[in-house]
Design a binder for these strands. Structure first.
Lengths: 113, 113
DNA sequence: ACTATATTTGTCAAATACTGACAAGTCTAA
DNA sequence: TTAGACTTGTCAGTATTTGACAAATATAGT
């Protein structure tokens, strides 16, 4: 388990035997900034997840899970929020998906009047 | 269940019989902007959670749970991220807390050399 | 229909946060 | 001690968020 996503990247990088400069190049990222990310002083930008996955041949969905779980844990921890929020969040995601399905059905009907 | 936190505020406001202007005043918030929040067109600012809790006499921890669960659900939904992230996040929160405890112990020892 | 109030929507400048870039520092191994 | 790796600090440019206000629309009472 890593303290933050940057630490996870560092692990990957070390396992892969890359330098900061090498990995930075693959991610379009200054090595200095990558260093900060690895040390938790900057956040890794969501938009580079796909690149990261492809550099290390990772499954994007798993990587997302890693990234967002980190993001969420940090948020809850920093705000001293109960992990009950996670349970509630799960229900809400279901609810949002369900609404979306309903909306699609409505649009379908509408477009076929 | 509400689609977003703003909708939840709207419920509270209606139950309390306030107008947007009235509630806005209590929250230091322009009524127009509060309207946008209620309709999901702006985000409610975290820093006003305490005020919100006090206006409606709500338990702050419960309100935080509501707020952050919404925040998290939105994040996962928008990024099409698996809810597995929630399980992982729970472990991570535990881990972060545990690290913090260890750190405190270290500091304690240090300060008492 | 008219008026007053409530709500919604659009816009904009100011404040804030984020990002890329680079310089300068420390660390490490040959 | 020198080269490459890594860390840290800083800063201007960019993007995002926020507060504020005007104007449009909606709603309810008369």
């Amino acid at each position: 388990m890593t303290k933050h996503f940057g630490e996870y990247i560092k692990q990957l990088r070390n396992e892969g035997g890359f330098t900061l400069t090498q990995l930075g190049a693959k991610l379009d990222l200054d090595s200095a900034n990558l260093s900060k990310i690895e040390n938790g002083k900057r956040d890794f930008d969501e938009k580079r997840l796909l690149q990261l996955a492809s550099v290390f041949n990772l499954d994007l969905d798993r990587l997302k899970t890693e990234f967002f779980s980190d993001f969420i844990a940090k948020k809850l921890y920093q705000n001293e929020c109960s992990t009950d929020a996670l349970i509630v969040a799960e229900e809400k995601v279901k609810y949002l998906k369900q609404i979306n399905v309903k909306q699609e059905k409505l649009n379908f009907t509408k477009n076929n009047d």
